[in-house]
């Protein structure tokens, strides 16, 4: 009897508690989104529904510049880190163990050191080579912190790779380049795409390193918001933030979908064997 009652007591908590935690995590995000549709300039009470801020935000030059910078940095850092990282992951696969170990463990250095230390290290380095903070330094820094994640993601895809396929391609007369383009790349494509998604979200998510790398002309949207918050923010910031939130969610769901596909194809393969 007692056990039964206990079980009954247990149930509501196991639903209620996660709901409370999700509420804690999502309420601030929802607040930003809701007030982007508010007619009042003040983010205090919801007075009425409007979409005017989504048009007005285009008139705010500084804000649009910051948003454009955010997208440009995310785009270039993702493309470059995916190309370099994928090549590295494939190269590591073919390498003998000693050098492989050195490189693989050095990949973890940028992941492990605190972001703020990474940020100031790059700041000190760039100022010593007389490279002022700009879009270029922003992009370089974002490539640097994304690169290890891309290599690790692509490598995890290569891990279950049958080397005889590559040998077969070569035996049939394909050169290194052709083997890579025709055989290796298509096989690791899901890993490359998830690596790219990861690099993209890491870039959009970053605050600390960008803070040290952004010059006055190259500030990003989150840094712009950081500078504005104390003086009070108008709802066009909410509108742009909402776009960024939805963009991030779309990227996440897309990469989740790809991940699901990879798992399915893996299951199918192992089923055949």
């Amino acid at each position: 009897m007692k056990l039964k009652r206990k079980l009954k007591e247990y149930k509501p908590i196991s639903v209620l508690y996660p709901c409370l935690v999700y509420l804690f995590l999502y309420v601030p995000i929802l607040v930003v989104i809701v007030f982007s549709f508010n007619t009042s300039r003040m983010n205090i009470v919801f007075e009425g529904f409007t979409v005017e801020w989504y048009f007005k935000m285009f008139e705010n030059r500084q804000l649009m510049d910051a948003f454009r910078n955010t997208l440009l940095v995310a785009f270039f850092s993702t493309v470059i880190s995916v190309i370099m990282g994928t090549l590295c992951a494939v190269g590591l696969y073919k390498l003998e163990s000693k050098i492989k170990n050195i490189i693989s463990s050095s990949l973890y250095i940028p992941i492990v050191i605190p972001e703020i230390v990474f940020g100031i290290a790059l700041l000190v380095f760039f100022s010593s080579v007389h490279l002022p903070t700009s879009m270029l330094t922003l992009i370089i820094s974002h490539i640097t912190f994304s690169l290890p994640f891309v290599v690790i993601t692509v490598r995890s895809r290569i891990a279950g790779f049958d080397p005889s396929i590559l040998e077969a391609a070569r035996d049939l007369g394909a050169g290194e380049f052709r083997t890579f383009m025709r055989v290796t790349l298509p096989m690791i494509m899901p890993g490359v795409i998830s690596g790219g998604m990861l690099a993209l979200t890491l870039s959009l998510d970053d605050v600390v390193i960008s803070f040290f790398m952004a010059g006055t002309e190259s500030t990003t949207l989150p840094l712009k918001i950081l500078g504005m918050v104390r003086k009070g923010v108008s709802p066009d910031v909410n509108a742009l933030s909402t776009l960024m939130i939805l963009g991030t969610i779309a990227i996440m769901l897309f990469s989740q979908m790809i991940q699901g596909k990879i798992e399915k194809s893996r299951e199918a393969h192992s089923g055949v064997e």
Partner: peptide, 23 residues
């Protein structure tokens, strides 16, 4: 999901909630 959304945007949400003239 929230973990991937830029944390300045999320903290800005808290700022809106907690301000003296806030929600």
């Amino acid at each position: 999901l929230p973990f991937w959304i830029n944390s300045i945007i999320r903290i800005y949400g808290w700022n809106t909630l907690l301000r003296t003239e806030g929600v």
